[in-house]
């Protein structure tokens, strides 16, 4: 019966009989040539943003009458010059008689209400 090291030795002797493969002639040169090919084919195409036309200043001209219109509206509204044209709900007596000190919540009347009903 063979020992472990004996088996190991036998195995190595058997494996020594196997083919000792060698790279084909010129294999390393072919590899290096392929390397150069990889180098040339792997070029990165730089990203260039698409050229855009610069906007004309005429595009901003449309903003001028819009801004003027807004400013005029604010002025006329503040001066009350157009109140006659607005609905009565906005400009009528009810709206105009608004008293900032009036208690619109009804909480202030709760005490009187309670006294009356006790």
């Amino acid at each position: 019966m063979t020992t472990g090291s004996g088996e190991e030795s036998e195995l190595r002797r058997i494996l020594a009989l196997a083919t000792a493969a060698e790279p084909p002639a010129g294999a390393a040169d072919r590899l290096m040539a392929r390397l150069a090919a990889v180098e040339t084919t792997a070029q990165v195409v730089p990203f260039r943003p698409r050229a855009t036309r610069r906007k004309s200043w005429f595009a901003y001209a449309a903003a001028v009458p819009l801004a003027a219109s807004l400013a005029l509206g604010i002025y006329l509204g503040a001066m009350g010059k157009l109140d006659t044209l607005l609905p009565a709900a906005i400009t009528g007596d009810l709206a105009m008689s608004f008293d900032a000190d009036a208690d619109l919540t009804g909480v202030g009347e709760a005490e009187a209400y309670a006294e009356e009903h006790t």
């Binding site: 083919t19 493969a21 390393a28 290096m32």
Partner: peptide
């Protein structure tokens, strides 16, 4: 890199062949 190829191409090829 050619030197790396010189050092390791043979064992790598042998392994692949095997």
């Amino acid at each position: 890199f050619a030197e790396l190829v010189n050092r390791y191409h043979r064992p790598v090829y042998r392994l692949v062949w095997r």
